[in-house]
Design a protein around this nucleic acid. Structure first.
Length: 476
RNA sequence: GGUCCUGUGGCCGAGUGGCUAGGCAGAGCUCUGCAAAAGCUCCUACACCAGUUCGAAUCUGGUCGGGACCUCCA
């Protein structure tokens, strides 16, 4: 695939990617509502869209990437009441917490991280414009968007207005002309945060902020708009309605949506209590594992997290870093190879796969092919050039995936420690046993040394004798 | 009820008309004091039924199963 093909939720097809303005890409991804720590699901989008951005940059585009914070919302207000704190205290706390989590991922930041409350004036003038153009109406200090005025309503989600009205699941609001109309501005009660507006003191509705911030920072038309697939309706549908009604232009050229993370085959949800916070995951396991797991499945398929899957990912990462360590140990001096020839074929497939709607599972398949090829070449002699090319391959692919930049020795130890947690043995015990065994081996008392090794193996610990001494690893 | 997605080997997971990824697990071999790592080899599947086609996991129709959205949600 010579061109970059990207699946567009709007056309439900892969399309050749061509930005509106040649050479530059404007990308907006809906960020979190900041009222709690984020879960791994939120991070799936973040990790995927980072790869998309990296790939676009690799293709030579200059990318303007906006990832927003929704810092005014009913959920934040609810939390502020529960905790008797200011809304701004809650939101700034969780923005900070998010940024702390984000740093652990070691991926580069978006170009902009706008906050909704910094754009209240823009929101007010955006809404005023919609009222002027008769797409919105005022009722009792509320402003509603009139969906039937926007004839293309439903084009993203494939819904039609009649079906939505006949559905029983829409809350009837007396002020609405039509049950499916949605609120652009609503009044704030005493004690709730609010801003003066032509419609009284109030705050923005649920969808307007993304339209406004995208417009303020990126302009009337953007190339890529992304988010989780549950945002398709109503959030993104409503964004289209607002933005296109205001500007009369097509809002986003490509709509890109990532699928969900399930846990033990169930959608993560608060009611089921199976939410995994990103921080918990990264503390219990490792950010590298999170990135690896998320990218090892195509972004439009759902992923299932389970303990077994996590273990498998750890094993795969150990395999990768073991080879990286081998290569790094082989080369002397700098590794500054720009031309990869030994792994040319695999690299081409990698590029084709990224071009094919960011098909990361195929990229991983190539990574393992490259590892096998490298190990094969190293069976007989240690060829420094191949090691350098191997590292160059990983440096290139790793920079797009934002993976594989850890120090092998360090992460291999950490990964094994994670696996060790599930075993009934401590690191200290293992070290003592290894010393005992070394002594026996030096005395050529192999019967004794094998006994020690077999006992450890029985507990799930494998020993391997290397030139650097005996090392241990966890066997599943 | 409406709209849409999906069903691949023991497990995970790509592939969307012929060449049949990759990982984990399992078996055998090479290497090694014995192991491990690594390599080689094997295990080779596409829910079911019909149709289109020289040829289908891949297209079409139907059946059955799983899931999402329609309500805040990544």
């Amino acid at each position: 695939m010579d061109h970059f093909n990207l699946y567009n939720s709007l056309s439900k097809k892969k399309e050749i990617f061509e930005p509106i303005t040649p050479g530059t890409v404007k990308m907006y991804v809906c960020g979190p509502t900041v009222y709690d720590l984020l879960h791994v699901g939120n991070f799936r989008g973040l990790i995927f869209f980072n790869v998309l951005r990296n790939w676009l940059k690799h293709l030579g585009y200059s990318v303007n990437y906006v990832y927003n914070y929704t810092d005014i919302d009913d959920k934040i207000i609810k939390k502020s009441k529960e905790e008797d704190k200011l809304v701004s205290e809650i939101s700034s706390k969780f923005i900070q917490e998010f940024e702390n989590d984000f740093k652990l991922l070691k991926i580069s930041k978006a170009s902009h991280n706008p906050k909704c409350t910094d754009y209240i004036n823009d929101i007010i003038s955006f809404i005023s414009d919609l009222i002027e153009k008769k797409f919105a109406y005022v009722r009792n200090n509320n402003v509603f968007f009139s969906c039937k005025k926007f004839s293309a309503y439903g084009k993203l989600s494939g819904k039609n207005i009649e079906d939505l009205i006949s559905g029983h699941r829409i809350t009837i609001n007396q002020d609405k002309e039509n049950p499916i109309d949605f609120v652009l501005w609503k009044p704030s009660d005493h004690g709730e945060p609010g801003w003066e507006s032509p419609w009284g003191r109030g705050r923005p509705g649920w969808h307007i902020e993304c339209s406004v911030m995208a417009n303020a920072i990126l302009g009337d038309q953007i190339d890529i708009h992304g988010g989780g697939m549950d945002l398709i309706f109503p959030h993104h549908e409503n964004e289209i309605a607002q933005s296109e009604s205001k500007t009369g232009k097509k809002f986003a050229k490509y709509w890109v949506h990532n699928n969900f993370i399930k846990f033990d085959d169930q959608k993560m949800s608060k009611s089921l209590g199976n939410i995994i916070k990103a921080r918990t995951f990264m503390t219990d396991y490792n950010p590298e594992i999170l990135k690896y797991m998320i990218l090892s499945v195509h972004y439009r398929s759902s992923i299932n997290f389970s303990f077994k899957q996590i273990q498998q990912s750890i094993i795969s990462l150990i395999k990768i870093y073991t080879a990286l360590e081998q290569a790094q140990n082989t080369i002397k001096g700098e590794c500054n190879i720009s031309n990869i020839s030994y792994f040319k074929e695999e690299l081409e497939i990698v590029q084709t796969s990224f071009n094919n709607d960011i098909n990361t599972p195929i990229v991983f398949a190539q990574i393992f092919n490259v590892i096998r090829k490298f190990n094969n070449a190293f069976k007989n002699e240690k060829n420094e050039n191949i090691a350098k090319e191997f590292l160059a391959f990983f440096s290139l692919v790793g920079s797009i995936l934002s993976l594989f930049s850890e120090k092998p020795k360090k992460i291999l130890f950490e990964l094994n420690l994670i696996l060790l947690k599930e075993k009934n043995i401590s690191l200290k015990q293992i070290e003592i046993e290894i010393k005992k065994r070394d002594k026996s081996r030096k005395e050529k008392n192999y019967k004794e040394s094998d006994l020690i090794r077999d006992e450890l193996l029985g507990k799930g610990i494998e020993l391997k004798d290397t030139i650097d001494g005996t090392q241990w690893s966890v066997k599943l």
